[in-house]
């Protein structure tokens, strides 16, 4: 069982070229901020390393941080074997949000990433099937959980506002 600081140390030792930042001054559990384009490599390490053994992705969710002009993705991981947990965060630019997919590592990430794509327009690179999951496939008004989203007046001839 390892805490977030120890896991951060292991990550820094294994990936000396990548930047990691520990955020622990918030009233929530501390989390590690890392680069969105290498999150797949980091996840592989977290999953495969026998001392970390993160075999379960509890949740993957997008967040629109409009004031900082960024979209972020949070990963909640758990090792069911070693009983420790970890929260990862990646930050991308709001205008071209691109994050590496982790579906190769945790199969359950597939639909979570599709949802984050549907709701926030975050593009997951190397995702096998990046389609909308909840909104209609022909929804053209954008991604509804973005803070600056405006609902359309009509969808397929149906009036949308009340």
């Amino acid at each position: 069982m390892k805490n977030t600081e120890e896991i951060l140390q292991a990550l820094k030792e294994n990936f000396p070229d990548f930047s990691f930042e520990l955020k622990s001054d918030l009233p929530v559990e501390g989390f590690i901020i890392c680069n969105p384009l290498v999150i797949d490599k980091i996840s592989h390490f977290l999953h495969d390393n026998p001392e970390l053994n993160f075999d379960s992705l509890i949740n993957l969710s997008g967040v629109d941080e409009i004031k900082a002009n960024q979209l972020s993705v949070y990963y909640h991981l758990e090792s069911t074997e070693l009983k420790h947990k970890l929260v990862l965060k990646v930050v991308t630019d709001r205008n071209s949000p691109e994050v590496a997919s982790v579906t190769d590592i945790w199969k359950g990430a597939n639909w979570h990433e599709r949802e984050a794509y549907d709701m926030f327009g975050i593009k997951f690179l190397n995702h096998p099937d990046l389609r909308r999951i909840l909104m209609p496939y022909d929804w053209e008004a954008g991604h509804p959980l973005r803070k600056d989203y405006e609902n359309p007046e009509f969808y397929q001839g149906m009036k949308v506002p009340f």
Partner: peptide, 18 residues
């Protein structure tokens, strides 16, 4: 009429009579 989703339900039809 859309019920509790009448204002912020971006995905809900506000009444089947539409």
């Amino acid at each position: 009429s859309g019920g509790p989703y009448w204002e912020h339900g971006y995905h809900v039809l506000k009444g089947i009579d539409r």
